[in-house]
Amino acid sequence: MIPDQPSRRPRLNPEKVHVAAVVALWTTAGVTLAVLAAIIVFILVHGLPMLTPEFLLAQPESMGRAGGIFPTIVGTLALTAVALAIATPLGVGTAIYLNEYSRGGRAAAAIRFGVDCLAGVPSIIFGLFGFIFFVIYLKMGWSVLSGGLTLAVMVLPTIMRTAEEALRAVPASYRQVSFATGATTWQTVTRVVLPVALPGTVTGIVLSIGRCVGETAAVIFTAGTALRLPLSIFSPTRTMAVHFYILAREGLSMPHAYGTAAVLVITILLVNTIANAIMLRFRAGVT
């Protein structure tokens, strides 16, 4: 892998080429960041003027053209809560099994493959599946439960992968010490391994919150679009992302659409910042 001819174009000064390349790479990264900044600024500039306590806490009026977005915030929270309540034990459980119990082998390989595939399934397919399975087949109707279950399935790989990474980063010596004191595997997991791996695991959960909040395609077919405060997990509901989609698409009210988008983007910013902060502390703690 050693280059046979380090300078294939002898006429070009390698040093100059290097400088040009470095400038180009800085520019590319800069442009990428600029695009991100432009998107966020665009939404916030248009949306921030709408953000008042009333907007967040009032009921919508005349289909969202006036009033607030309170039910959609509650709807988003409810869906996310259901999704995480289901996906967290399953995801973390999978990670624990793969990393602490399975002795490799076919089952583990198959499970890893399944998780990888699930991570690649597009959200519209989750939507179709959730609609046909939860809404129709299990007769849950368009509801917080159907939507939450669909989202749970969707974020399962994220939670599982980050948890597994966190578990893997726990030094083997910790376990050896624990086993040496006569602890069982489960005791080792709960008392030694999990506490150390907790920040990494939590990062995955926080990132999943972000995906739940931002998802549209999987939710619109399963939780419905009813613009009402959900009274139970069997009520249909509308999330902020779906509300934004409908407002923008139907052209009902651009200010309200931008306001909703601003709440969405701020939520995502917060969620990512929290996840990142946990991750950094986690890294600092392990190494």
């Binding site: 087949y137 299990l138 007769k139 849950m140 109707g141 368009w142 509801s143 139970s232 069997f234 009520s235 249909p236």
Partner: peptide, 14 residues
């Protein structure tokens, strides 16, 4: 278990 739990209508008029 889940299927037997309930139908789509829960008090509301859909």
């Amino acid at each position: 278990g889940v299927a037997g739990c309930r139908g789509p209508q829960s008090g509301g008029l859909t």
